[in-house]
């Protein structure tokens, strides 16, 4: 595969995988927490949180990217704070691409997981509590196993979204080969130069393959888990 893909193309694919993986893995716990709060809790500001979570889905990605730049740029207060305290720089780094991908994927993950939460019968959780399980135990031994298919679906959806993220990424971290040039950015870049169509086409093929593999894999895992949960 390394022979078939040129070095710049290969680097873009590898970077995209890295960025998407980090984006998915790091935002998944937060997505579960948010989905749980939205599905189960009634608190002031719940609608506001709901709107905030869904905002990246509706805003033009360029706008999201620019907002990220305004908040996490090296001269922005938050960006400077993160750099000074944790040495964490987002602007024009692959970490920034991961952040942008995570934020764009977040609403999709939350939606899938929230649906799973709402499908869990609270009566089962009540039964668990009468059997001696405290709330964290009920969550770990009843709720979590029952929402597992939703979490898997959310993670795959989020991963696919992260792989395809373009607008926010290019606005926030630009299109630097080897640094922030993800697969979609590379396709875009190749299409801008004469004779780049072949490279672009190869990347498109890779992109399609990854997407289909991810979907099939998630379907397989989810149906296994669902079968186990239904108990058949």
């Amino acid at each position: 595969m390394t022979d078939w893909l040129g070095p710049q193309e290969w680097i873009a694919v590898a970077l995209s995988l890295k960025v998407s993986l980090w984006a998915t893995v790091l935002s998944l716990p937060l997505a579960v927490l948010t989905a749980w709060a939205l599905a189960r809790k009634r608190f002031p500001g719940r609608q506001l949180l709901n709107a905030l979570v869904h905002l990246p889905l509706i805003l033009p990605p360029v706008v999201t990217g620019y907002l990220l730049l305004l908040s996490f740029g090296r001269r922005a207060p938050l960006g400077r704070f993160l750099e000074d305290t944790f040495g964490l720089v987002f602007a024009f780094r692959w970490t920034g691409a991961a952040l942008a991908a995570a934020i764009m994927a977040f609403p999709l993950m939350v939606r899938a997981i929230r649906l799973a939460f709402e499908a869990v019968d609270p009566k089962l959780e009540q039964a668990a509590s009468t059997l001696g399980a405290s709330r964290p135990w009920v969550f770990a031994t009843v709720t979590l196993p029952l929402i597992a298919p939703g979490i898997i679906a959310g993670a795959v959806l989020g991963f696919a979204k992260a792989m395809g993220e373009f607008g926010a990424t290019i606005t926030f971290v630009a299109n630097i080969p080897g640094q922030t040039q993800t697969l979609p950015s590379a396709v875009y870049a190749f299409l801008q130069v004469p004779g780049g169509e072949n490279s672009a086409l190869r990347l498109v093929l890779v992109s399609v393959t990854i997407a289909i593999t991810a979907l099939l894999l998630s379907e397989l895992i989810a149906s296994r888990v669902a079968k186990r949960i239904r108990g058949s």
């Binding site: 009566k123 089962l124 039964a127 668990a128 009843v142 196993p145 029952l146 186990r228 949960i229 108990g231």
Partner: peptide
Amino acid sequence: QQDRLFPH
């Protein structure tokens, strides 16, 4: 009233 067994 309903068994409420854990399906998983």
